[in-house]
Each structure stands twice: as structure tokens, then as C-alpha cells.
Design a protein around this nucleic acid. Structure first.
Length: 169
DNA sequence: GAGTTTGAAACT
DNA sequence: CAGTTTCAAACTC
């Protein structure tokens, strides 16, 4: 009778119960995002401003948020690296053996290609934050381990989390 | 600051 | 594609 107090109900059910917002509103087909090419720096776009750490064009870049990773083993060329995942170069990070830098552009491209080949929407910047989902098991989606909670959003019908407490209500 | 926990990403 | 491993961040002490 009080669904918002039941932590065992799935986020999907809860979402439907509490909001019933139109799902289609979250993914409009003509979404103005360059989904197929999140890293738009090509030879046709000379890097006149190498000091910038964003990889995306200025309009789509995540502004005002400087990532500072501490990656040690991945050369900052995997999605483990927040900077890389967000399409930013590592500048001023505490990472080791970083290759997420303009001077390693070829290796970066190679990694990007590999990741995109596996999942064309892998790069977070291509997904609206609000449509991301989580698979949390132990955090109750109430810690920043949770992608949804960490981004300041409720869990959504696409989440597969267990014992979710990050629910509208 | 060191060690533990967590869940996404990567791998098999 | 499911299960396992690796990874780096979040968290705890």
C-alpha cells in the first residue's frame, strides 16, 4: 500500500508507480548529440587550442567540471578513467603513465575505436545523464558508487539494482 | 593516509 | 551472453 517504503520493489515498478512519466521523453530520436562520433577532434578540426582539455566541441563539452583521475594501470585509455570517459584530456591529474594526452593521439584513437566498436554508446557524453542506469547490489543506490545517485538522479526503469533506496518519493 | 568496499568496465 | 577479473573511485577507519 505504501510502495515508496518497500525497498524490495524494483526501481522499474517504483518508477512507474511514482512518476508514470512518458519514457519517450528521455530519448528523442533527433537528439542533438553527435552520438556516432563523440570524439569529434578530427584532422578537419585543427586543435588551435591545445591547452583545452576537452575533446568534444565547445558546445557539447562538459563545462566547468575538471576531472582529476588517479589511474595507474590503464594509461587513462579505458573507461575506468573518468577523464577519458568524459571526453577530456588528463591535465593536472594524478595519473601514472597517462596517454590520454594530445601527444598520444594515435593510441587514444585506437582505444576509442576499440571501445566504440564494442559499444557505440559507451562514452558517457553520448548519453544524457538522466538515462543512465545502474546495477548496484549493496549500496542501496544511496552512495556515490551508484551512477544514478552519484549524478544526482533517481534510479530509473532501466536500472537493475537491488534494494534500491534511490527512488522518487 | 592506508585499507576496504563497491560496481562499472573489461575480459574470458 | 553469463560469469569472472580488473580497475579506480568512494568510503571507512
Amino acid at each position: 500500500m505504501e510502495p515508496n517504503n518497500n525497498p524490495d520493489i524494483s526501481p522499474f515498478s517504483m518508477f512507474c508507480l511514482k512518476t508514470l512519466s512518458p519514457l519517450t521523453a528521455q530519448r528523442s530520436p533527433g537528439m542533438p548529440m553527435d552520438i556516432d562520433s563523440p570524439f569529434t577532434t578530427t584532422e578537419s578540426t585543427p586543435q588551435t587550442n591545445p591547452a583545452r582539455f576537452t575533446l568534444f566541441d565547445q558546445n557539447s563539452a562538459i563545462q566547468g567540471k575538471k576531472c582529476t583521475c588517479k589511474c595507474r594501470k590503464t594509461f587513462c585509455l579505458k573507461l575506468y578513467c573518468d577523464c577519458f570517459a568524459n571526453g577530456e584530456y588528463c591535465i593536472g591529474c594524478g595519473c601514472m603513465e597517462c596517454k590520454n594526452l594530445p601527444e598520444y593521439e594515435s593510441e587514444r584513437r585506437e582505444s576509442i575505436t576499440q571501445i566504440m566498436d564494442r559499444n557505440p554508446e559507451a562514452f558517457r557524453r553520448t548519453q544524457p545523464v538522466t538515462t543512465r542506469s545502474c546495477n548496484c547490489k549493496r549500496s542501496g543506490c544511496k552512495k556515490k558508487y551508484c551512477e544514478c545517485y552519484g549524478n544526482g538522479f533517481m534510479c530509473n526503469p532501466f536500472c537493475k539494482c537491488e534494494g534500491c533506496l534511490n527512488i522518487p518519493g
